[in-house]
């Protein structure tokens, strides 16, 4: 199966990219890793008239820490995180996620920012981005904006990136000391989108209480969903079995999945709870907090 014909542009600079995007507006799609876009075009589910290929913009292929943030550029591949010792040592939630997105070959081309822009309701990165309170740097011909992830994920397959704009970077706040996290995913096999997914990131205070917390679930609504009730219930307390159970129940309550071949609504709602429980447990255990099983 082959894509329908399109016009192809490969700009040599970001400025040139922005000019093209401004010129073609809604007719254009940005091509980065292409791992979702190209199959969609082969099935002719996507028929962009113009592709703007940014793969030549090597300056966007970065993963770096600066100003208290981990910045991941629009051309950084999933695999770059999976193989980064910085990510492995300091960003356990991201490291977990990077190992289960799609499959190991797709991850060598697929990008983190591209996945966020695709905003598949069952995608992985949006869940992790919510739990770790990421921000997206979006640029258009009129300037740059920094969009919090909660505002970025508008609806399924829809984001805050407007026509003529490009998402340049995703930023994850660098975790303070005593921070850990975990990503839990149920998939039918490697390469599948999540049947259910949960991400948790926790920072403990000096007294052992939860200072900062992020909890999100995937495949449980039109976009990845923050489990705000569970976050506020856990914030400021010392973790207990009951508190984790309550957080899991909060996830079950808020989960609003659709039935599909991956599972029924009932199953996915329950899995949202199970996985939130497991993500919290794993994160606490990584912080040396035991006795929660």
């Amino acid at each position: 199966m082959f894509p329908a014909p399109f016009d192809y542009h490969r700009p040599g600079s970001l400025d040139e990219t922005l000019v093209l995007l401004a010129q073609y507006g809604g007719d254009a799609r940005v091509l980065a890793g292409g791992q979702s876009l190209i199959p969609a075009m082969r099935f002719r589910l996507a028929r962009p008239a113009v592709l703007v290929d940014i793969n030549q913009l090597d300056e966007l292929a970065y993963v770096r820490e600066a100003d208290g943030m981990l910045a991941i550029g629009a051309l950084a591949r999933d695999a770059a995180l999976e193989r980064s010792s910085l990510i492995e040592s300091s960003y356990p939630l991201l490291f977990d996620t990077s190992a289960v997105v799609a499959d190991p070959v797709v991850r060598q081309m697929g990008t983190v920012v591209g996945s966020l822009c695709h905003n598949d309701p069952s995608g992985d990165w949006s869940v992790t981005a919510l739990a770790s309170r990421a921000q997206i740097v979006v640029r258009g011909s009129t300037g740059t904006r920094v969009v919090p992830i909660d505002e970025f994920l508008v609806d399924s397959f829809s984001t805050a990136v407007a026509e003529g704009e490009i998402a340049l970077e995703v930023r994850f706040p660098s975790p303070p000391p005593r921070t850990s996290g975990s990503y839990q995913k149920i998939e039918r096999k490697v390469g599948d989108f999540a049947t259910s997914a949960a991400a948790a990131q926790i920072t403990l205070g000096d007294d052992g209480t939860v200072a900062q917390i992020g909890i999100a679930i995937g495949a449980a609504g039109p976009t990845a969903t923050r489990v705000a009730d569970a976050e506020s219930a856990l914030r400021g307390i010392k973790p207990t079995k009951d508190a984790i159970r309550a957080a899991a129940d909060a996830a079950r309550k808020i989960a609003d999945p659709v039935a599909d071949p991956r599972g029924s609504v009932e199953f996915k709602k329950d899995m949202a709870g199970v996985l939130v429980g497991r993500a919290l447990l794993a994160a606490f255990e990584r912080l040396g907090v035991g006795g929660l099983r």
Partner: peptide, 28 residues
Amino acid sequence: FMQEIVYDESGNNLNTNFTEYLVPTSLE
């Protein structure tokens, strides 16, 4: 554990490619 061709009540085939007709990988 995973392979099946399912038709819904309206007669639509729900397993029309390898994203839905599941072939196990080396990991499973």
